[in-house]
Nucleic acid binder design. Structure first.
Lengths: 189, 189
DNA sequence: GTCTATAAGGGGATAGAC
DNA sequence: GTCTATCCCCTTATAGAC
């Protein structure tokens, strides 16, 4: 299939973005890993920016799909948040990656505008999905009535992103620790 | 003074690291900003790695000093955490920077070993200082007895780092929101 | 779709004059 | 300490053959 090599290029690029950053890999790295020449990559993605945009869009779909699956499979807030945390612990367990969102956001000012815009969408909507879980949880009395669902969502999202980043330099189980204590602090009962 | 240009180089490099990342700036950028030629920079920092190491060490001293000042000026856990949050909100207000720690941690695998080691120390000790505040706070009954000070410190550190990163793509007051809700959730009373 | 060849410029770094 | 000149490799990207 013609899509196959495109997928393999995106897979390789994603791993490199999540470990080295957008400015930390080249078409040469990709070529070596996928087994073609750098010039051939330009056939699939004319410019590196095109690749980056495609990468963020694909990642957006991945997160979006995962969130919908969580919503369908679990009704309790605690279980849903567990599912959200699992998305990000999945990154960590595969080669000490961080989320594509924070990998790119760290280099924000150096990114092409198109990539910045896709990134804004990814981050805004990711927080939005989590906020949605908190709003439903509030209606079900699963958090203290005084708490703001949107603020809790921002906290969870920031903490999960930060935990992955920090995990690299401390090797401890930061993400698991953060998830546990967040559950204790936010869930009512 | 001979140190002056060294300081200006470190200042310029730090801003670039906090906005573009280590792989996102060059000696050329530095040269333009400081007003000398790239070759002259090599006199002060023979290799880019040397500059990066010096940068992280200087930043370590900055954070270390700030933490000691917080400990001396405030005794309550709430006030101390406010002080810690102020360190990071200071980054944000100056050119939408993120912390040097997360900027570099995002590109971890692509960094020279010496830089990785300095970064490990920065992140480990930063968490350690916050954990120290929580331990004292626990003795003073300012958190619930059941809470683990180390875990709370990890949560705070991850959330602050993550909030700065996320703030770039959402422009909202994420850091302030995260700090507020963390205070509500962690402080007893 | 993938290749070779090649362009044009950026990257870190060094030698040696001043 | 800073400069000019230079090296050599990497980087993105294009042209055109297969």
């Amino acid at each position: 299939m013609s899509d196959d090599i495109k997928t393999r290029l995106l897979d390789a690029a994603q791993l490199l973005v999540q470990t080295h950053g957008h400015n930390g890999y080249s078409y040469r790295d990709l070529a070596t890993q996928v087994g073609i020449r750098t010039a051939s990559i330009h056939y699939h993605f004319p410019a590196k920016t095109d690749l980056a945009v495609a990468l963020v869009r694909r990642y957006y779909e991945f997160v979006s799909t995962a969130m919908k699956k969580i919503e369908g499979e679990h009704t309790s807030l605690a279980k849903r948040l567990e599912g959200v945390a699992a998305i990000y612990s999945g990154c960590l367990s595969a080669n000490h990656r961080i989320c594509v969102a924070s990998a790119l956001a760290a280099e924000y000012s150096s990114l092409p505008r198109e990539v910045q815009e896709e990134l804004n969408r990814l981050i805004t909507d990711s927080q939005g999905w989590i906020a949605h879980f908190f709003e439903e949880g509030k209606k079900r009395g699963e958090i203290l009535p005084a708490r703001d669902p949107a603020a809790l969502a921002r906290l969870w999202y920031a903490a999960l992103q930060g935990a992955l980043v920090v995990a690299r330099a401390t090797d401890t189980t930061v993400l698991a620790d953060v998830t546990n204590i967040l559950q204790q602090l936010t869930i009512q009962g």
